[in-house]
Measured scan of single mutants.
Amino acid sequence: QVALSRTQVCGILREELFQGDAFHQSDTHIFIIMGASGDLAKKKIYPTIWWLFRDGLLPENTFIVGYARSRLTVADIRKQSEPFFKATPEEKLKLEDFFARNSYVAGQYDDAASYQRLNSHMNALHLGSQANRLFYLALPPTVYEAVTKNIHESCMSQIGWNRIIVEKPFGRDLQSSDRLSNHISSLFREDQIYRIDHYLGKEMVQNLMVLRFANRIFGPIWNRDNIACVILTFKEPFGTEGRGGYFDEFGIIRDVMQNHLLQMLCLVAMEKPASTNSDDVRDEKVKVLKCISEVQANNVVLGQYVGNPDGEGEATKGYLDDPTVPRGSTTATFAAVVLYVENERWDGVPFILRCGKALNERKAEVRLQFHDVAGDIFHQQCKRNELVIRVQPNEAVYTKMMTKKPGMFFNPEESELDLTYGNRYKNVKLPDAYERLILDVFCGSQMHFVRSDELREAWRIFTPLLHQIELEKPKPIPYIYGSRGPTEADELMKRVGFQYEGTYKWVNPHKL
């Protein structure tokens, strides 16, 4: 086992960053958080920038500027975001240094004079007029057009580079997404736009490419001749908990499936790229999406959770019991969808996408189930092999396979070949997804960000279904809070070829 401390991990990262040409360590950078008073800024962006600063992973002359409508001070920003920093008493001095680099400007999102004030403020910072500028839009999409237009007109660096990070949702359907994309691309070049999907920053999602293309053993079996089906799962054990009003506007397909799960599907299904260059990788992902037809209604199961009468606390409440959810809402909190990649490698292999709230566990994984062994000599005792990439929690890679049961006879039983990170790298604290992705933006690497043509294809696949749901308002199937979801989803999976045995229990190697 390799035991690495946080300091050692960050030392390795620093070495990698400083050796590259793309990370300008000594240049002045300004990180501007648009929507600095909001939840995302408070819980994710400010803490992430602090962790990067604490670990010495930001360029040395980096300033952080918050911008929002609320009249706040840096002290206010500190008060609301610091509880999420997880700072230790030993880091007190470092924390003071961090907040000394912070400033805040209040202004409207659609007022040109406010942006001119913001620009004057940035120019007044040390070497601010020639600094590289990175704008993070932690804002609702309704203000994107006004904000990007004003940034472009008043706040661009004339000497350094300018980059803009856009948070999902990128529209509600193909038409609104196209409108937003066309607007942003009329102001910024594609190499300046970073559409963030934080799932692409997760260690195991990034590991998929290495697993596939750096190991000879997987190449020959990664196709329709050997793989019976692919299941991509995202499960949350909690409901909307008072935030249903926002969720109800989008629903589970827009929230998770059309982005996170579809991105994971691309990494499983794509061909080997010409290189690890950002556009070479994204070219292959677009090719996969172009091979997927629009979702067919007979390959869809929609569910909505109801309270568990035997549960406790939140578990007793259904989705419609959330006071922020519109009365009688038919918005799905669970969806199972089957897609097919219609190309030579994957023809006929079902890709089953499942996601839901208020389920029995927290889990995100990719599961490849292989065909049955031909010419069975073990009297149907063999179960199908599976390769599982567990994204969260407890990152893991393992192969479910058959071995001989101890004893006199040739009785096979299920076991696993474990390729888990935790076994080799004991207690290594890896940077989280937002840390990686923000560092990628500083480096100018777009590999783990969504390109406009990729986004367009993703919406093309799901828009007809979303429009049909909005028009017909089908009643989702009720499922109990804390269950596996509607049984109809299991029946759909069985119908397209997935075999669920229920006889195997994964042993978490992190707890051995």
Rank of each mutant, 00 (worst) to 15 (best):
residue 425 Y to H: 11
residue 404 K to W: 01
residue 429 K to C: 12
residue 353 L to C: 06
residue 418 D to S: 07
residue 332 A to F: 02
residue 294 E to R: 13
residue 389 I to S: 01
residue 360 N to I: 04
residue 399 T to E: 07
residue 504 Y to A: 04
residue 405 K to I: 13
residue 399 T to N: 07
residue 419 L to A: 06
residue 279 D to W: 09
residue 500 Y to W: 13
residue 400 K to Y: 05
residue 401 M to E: 01
residue 422 G to E: 15
residue 298 N to G: 13
residue 298 N to E: 12
residue 433 A to I: 02
residue 456 R to M: 07
residue 287 K to A: 10
residue 300 V to M: 14
residue 324 T to K: 09
residue 412 P to E: 11
residue 506 W to D: 04
residue 472 E to G: 13
residue 374 A to K: 10
residue 369 Q to N: 05
residue 405 K to G: 07
residue 361 E to F: 02
residue 309 P to G: 12
residue 502 G to K: 09
residue 447 M to C: 07
residue 387 L to K: 03
residue 354 R to G: 03
residue 405 K to S: 13
residue 502 G to H: 11
residue 357 K to M: 01
residue 446 Q to D: 01
residue 389 I to R: 02
residue 351 F to N: 01
residue 362 R to G: 09
residue 451 R to L: 02
residue 472 E to N: 11
residue 423 N to S: 14
residue 378 F to K: 00
residue 372 D to A: 08
residue 333 T to G: 02
residue 388 V to M: 00
residue 258 Q to V: 07
residue 415 S to P: 02
residue 311 G to M: 13
residue 333 T to A: 00
residue 349 V to K: 00
residue 268 V to M: 10
residue 355 C to M: 05
residue 349 V to L: 02
residue 322 D to Q: 05
residue 290 K to E: 14
residue 356 G to T: 00
residue 399 T to A: 13
residue 256 V to E: 08
residue 288 V to C: 10
residue 345 R to K: 10
residue 326 P to L: 06
residue 441 V to T: 14
residue 381 Q to M: 09
residue 434 Y to R: 01
residue 504 Y to G: 06
residue 447 M to I: 11
residue 476 P to M: 07
residue 507 V to W: 13
residue 475 K to I: 12
residue 345 R to T: 14
residue 412 P to Q: 11
residue 501 E to I: 10
residue 339 L to Y: 05
residue 463 T to A: 06
residue 323 P to I: 15
residue 283 D to S: 08
residue 479 Y to P: 01
residue 490 D to Q: 07
residue 427 N to V: 06
residue 253 I to A: 06
residue 323 P to W: 11
residue 283 D to H: 04
residue 421 Y to M: 09
residue 429 K to S: 14
residue 402 M to K: 05
residue 469 I to S: 10
residue 283 D to E: 07
residue 489 A to D: 03
residue 466 L to E: 04
residue 436 R to A: 09
residue 253 I to V: 12
residue 287 K to L: 07
residue 388 V to F: 02
residue 274 A to R: 13
residue 277 N to C: 10
residue 432 D to M: 07
residue 294 E to C: 14
residue 318 G to Y: 02
residue 359 L to K: 00
residue 259 N to W: 02
residue 497 G to M: 05
residue 285 K to S: 03
residue 384 R to Q: 08
residue 414 E to H: 09
residue 273 P to N: 01
residue 401 M to L: 08
residue 256 V to M: 08
residue 340 Y to F: 13
residue 450 V to K: 03
residue 281 V to F: 00
residue 306 V to L: 11
residue 489 A to M: 08
residue 396 A to T: 10
residue 339 L to D: 00
residue 345 R to C: 09
residue 285 K to Y: 01
residue 441 V to A: 14
residue 332 A to V: 05
residue 429 K to A: 14
residue 350 P to E: 02
residue 272 K to E: 10
residue 430 L to D: 05
residue 425 Y to E: 05
residue 288 V to H: 00
residue 369 Q to W: 01
residue 492 L to K: 06
residue 444 G to P: 02
residue 311 G to P: 08
residue 370 F to V: 05
residue 362 R to E: 00
residue 399 T to Y: 14
residue 385 N to Q: 06
residue 309 P to R: 10
residue 376 D to K: 09
residue 499 Q to V: 11
residue 260 H to V: 03
residue 438 I to N: 00
residue 389 I to P: 02
residue 407 G to T: 06
residue 481 Y to L: 08
residue 402 M to R: 00
residue 414 E to T: 13
residue 352 I to V: 13
residue 374 A to L: 14
residue 358 A to V: 00
residue 344 E to W: 07
residue 451 R to C: 01
residue 269 A to H: 03
residue 301 V to L: 08
residue 439 L to Q: 06
residue 480 I to M: 15
residue 255 D to T: 01
residue 341 V to Y: 01
residue 275 S to Q: 05
residue 385 N to A: 02
residue 470 E to Y: 08
residue 400 K to L: 03
residue 368 L to C: 08
residue 378 F to W: 11
residue 313 G to Q: 10
residue 255 D to H: 03
residue 393 P to T: 06
residue 352 I to T: 05
residue 443 C to M: 14
residue 371 H to A: 10
residue 500 Y to H: 14
residue 433 A to N: 05
residue 481 Y to I: 08
residue 375 G to D: 14
residue 326 P to Q: 06
residue 271 E to D: 09
residue 496 V to L: 10
residue 477 I to P: 11
residue 500 Y to F: 14
residue 374 A to T: 11
residue 506 W to E: 05
residue 275 S to M: 05
residue 375 G to L: 11
residue 328 G to F: 12
residue 340 Y to T: 13
residue 298 N to L: 10
residue 486 P to Y: 02
residue 497 G to R: 08
residue 359 L to M: 15
residue 497 G to H: 11
residue 420 T to R: 06
residue 313 G to N: 12
residue 354 R to D: 04
residue 364 A to Y: 00
residue 316 T to Q: 15
residue 454 E to C: 01
residue 503 T to C: 12
residue 338 V to D: 06
residue 367 R to N: 02
residue 338 V to N: 11
residue 341 V to N: 02
residue 375 G to F: 08
residue 473 K to I: 09
residue 492 L to F: 10
residue 364 A to K: 05
residue 479 Y to C: 02
residue 416 E to I: 00
residue 442 F to H: 08
residue 448 H to F: 03
residue 276 T to Y: 00
residue 316 T to L: 14
residue 297 A to M: 12
residue 368 L to S: 01
residue 377 I to N: 09
residue 279 D to H: 09
residue 335 A to Q: 03
residue 366 V to F: 08
residue 306 V to D: 12
residue 379 H to G: 11
residue 344 E to S: 13
residue 465 L to A: 09
residue 381 Q to S: 12
residue 416 E to K: 02
residue 362 R to V: 09
residue 429 K to I: 13
residue 278 S to T: 08
residue 298 N to F: 09
residue 394 N to V: 05
residue 446 Q to T: 08
residue 310 D to M: 12
residue 443 C to Y: 14
residue 377 I to P: 12
residue 281 V to Q: 04
residue 432 D to A: 10
residue 342 E to Q: 15
residue 342 E to M: 15
residue 366 V to R: 03
residue 499 Q to L: 11
residue 393 P to N: 06
residue 283 D to G: 10
residue 427 N to K: 08
residue 507 V to A: 14
residue 286 V to Y: 09
residue 463 T to M: 02
residue 350 P to V: 02
residue 436 R to K: 13
residue 485 G to R: 04
residue 431 P to C: 08
residue 329 S to Y: 01
residue 269 A to N: 02
residue 488 E to D: 14
residue 460 R to H: 07
residue 392 Q to F: 06
residue 479 Y to L: 03
residue 336 A to W: 00
residue 480 I to K: 14
residue 313 G to F: 11
residue 255 D to V: 03
residue 329 S to T: 12
residue 470 E to D: 10
residue 350 P to A: 00
residue 336 A to T: 15
residue 405 K to Y: 10
residue 488 E to L: 10
residue 283 D to Q: 03
residue 398 Y to A: 01
residue 415 S to K: 00
residue 316 T to E: 13
residue 387 L to R: 02
residue 286 V to G: 08
residue 310 D to N: 14
residue 260 H to I: 02
residue 271 E to S: 07
residue 325 V to E: 01
residue 316 T to R: 15
residue 442 F to W: 08
residue 337 V to C: 14
residue 367 R to K: 01
residue 325 V to I: 07
residue 381 Q to P: 13
residue 341 V to S: 03
residue 309 P to L: 14
residue 265 L to S: 05
residue 360 N to V: 00
residue 253 I to R: 01
residue 314 E to Q: 10
residue 493 M to I: 15
